[in-house]
Design a protein around this nucleic acid. Structure first.
Length: 401
RNA sequence: GCAGGGUUAGUGAAGCGGGCAAACACGUCAGACUGUAAAUCUGAUGGCUUAUGCCUUCGUAGGUUCGAAUCCUACACCCUGCA
């Protein structure tokens, strides 16, 4: 894996990540394909959308169908019939989302600390915690069948090498905005140890690029420490993970603490982010790649992106709820400025009807639209950086970077 | 015609003398979702501009009772037997 910076605009930059399965022009949004598929889409859709890569998940593919089987098929890309670049996440996030996150009903980004009532509402207290973290790794029971398993840095990297993605991630511990500084620091120190061990376990260096993951929650001191440590390791790329605080401002602060002290020549991945606004603000701060379930998940739930011309604003997160009654007879496309398959062929009324009827096509059309929307946005962002006009483009969207 | 059973909010369906504006399900409406246990989850759903409040509802009309969706009478309609 190689990375070249091709232009700069303040702290933002464009570049190219060269992988054995093709180049990724950055900044890029990588759609999430957890179980070796981007939900509702097939590979021809991904090609037509010009998806730069797909990010799959180590935990899920380890449990099913198993890394040995995928290895026999020639790796993740071959297995899923996708000839473009692939990423795999290390499984660290599942330790969080199926452990602490599930127990407390929180995500890695939280606008509020859940109060007692919310905690009770969202948590699953009857369910035993699926994960137990120790200094060396994590014991867990499969959410599928309750079977007992263990992940360590070595195991995660071994699985990821069998999966064979072009870009892989070190095994890390993700914390929540609810964790205090003391615990966040302990988790960060574990992540550092595991990162070091991940680098040692990483042998397939020709074909796979490893990214270390910076942790430290929303604590400046910890984030700086973590950046220094992770960047001291010999990895071709770095990633920012973990709790990104309680607000967008917290997240931007974290980027401001970390990115300026990270080596410029290494690509930076922002794990699990991207809402529309974030793609601007994080690109402006020097993030090169994103992955996020948001566009695909909210699509399946009836939220579709609209540009400022079609009524999108930072306040409504640039999306509308296409299931709403007010679109029942709307003969326009989701977004009149969009030239995706969905917008070229279908009306809001039709898509609303499909959602109301529970038709699978609704989710597929919405997913196509949302992914096209973010890919096209990333195109615009790259073009703007090349012309050193990213902040102006952002302003056109009502976003101050 | 005789005997029995039924008629409850948009739909289905609980309730069978007081805590019933009426369970539950579906539907409908609204919202949430950021390294995907997510085609999931949350809330609202008789009216009153938001109330430990008032008003109107349980086929229709009367009645009994301090009090009725719940008991009685008549009527209407539906179902099941027997004619």
């Amino acid at each position: 894996m190689k990375f070249n910076i091709t232009s700069k605009d303040g702290r933002a930059r464009t570049g190219v990540i060269k992988t054995p399965h093709g180049n990724i022009e950055t900044p890029a949004f990588i759609p999430v394909g957890t179980k070796a598929d981007v939900k509702t889409l097939d590979i021809s859709d991904l090609h037509k959308l010009r998806a730069p890569a797909v990010l799959a998940n180590t935990y899920h593919l380890y449990l099913r169908p198993g890394p040995d089987l995928i290895e026999k098929f020639g790796g993740l890309g071959e297995f899923m019939g996708w000839d473009g670049p692939t990423f795999t996440d290390s499984g660290g996030f599942q330790v969080f989302s199926l452990g602490f996150g599930l127990e407390h009903g929180v995500s890695k980004v939280s606008n509020i600390f859940p109060d007692e009532e919310n905690k009770r509402k969202n948590a699953v207290p009857s369910r035993k915690k699926l994960f137990k973290i120790d200094e060396d790794g994590v014991n867990f029971v499969s959410h599928l069948d309750g079977g007992k398993h263990r992940f360590t840095a070595e195991i995660s990297i071994d699985i990821q090498q069998k999966l064979g993605a072009d870009i892989i991630f070190a095994f890390d511990e993700c914390t929540s905005p609810m964790h205090d500084k003391k615990y966040t620091e302990e988790a960060m120190n574990r992540t550092h140890k595991w990162a070091k061990r991940s680098v040692q376990a990483w042998t397939n260096r020709e074909k796979q690029g490893l990214y270390g993951i910076i942790q430290g929650g929303a604590y400046e001191e910890l984030r700086r420490k973590s950046t220094e440590f992770i960047c001291s390791l010999d990895t071709p790329g770095i990633a920012i993970g973990g709790s990104l605080g309680k607000s967008k401002k917290d997240m931007y602060d974290i980027l401001d603490w970390t990115l300026p002290i990270a080596p410029e020549e290494r690509p930076r991945h922002l794990l699990g982010i991207g809402e529309i606004e974030d793609l601007f603000t994080a690109s402006a701060r020097g993030i090169d790649t994103f992955d996020c379930v948001s566009p695909t998940r909210i699509a399946r739930n009836g939220s579709v992106y609209v540009s400022p011309q079609a009524g999108g604003t930072p306040a409504n997160k640039f999306n509308i709820n296409i299931r709403a009654q007010k679109y029942a007879a709307d003969s326009g496309p989701i977004d009149e400025n969009c030239d995706c398959f969905t917008c070229k062929n279908h009306t809001r009324a039709y898509i609303r009807h499909l959602f109301a009827s529970g038709e699978l096509l609704a989710m597929r059309l919405a997913t196509i639209h949302n992914l096209h929307f973010v890919f096209s946005l990333m195109n615009g962002i790259r073009g703007a950086i090349q012309k050193e006009r990213l902040s102006k483009l952002a302003l056109d969207w009502g976003i101050k970077v």
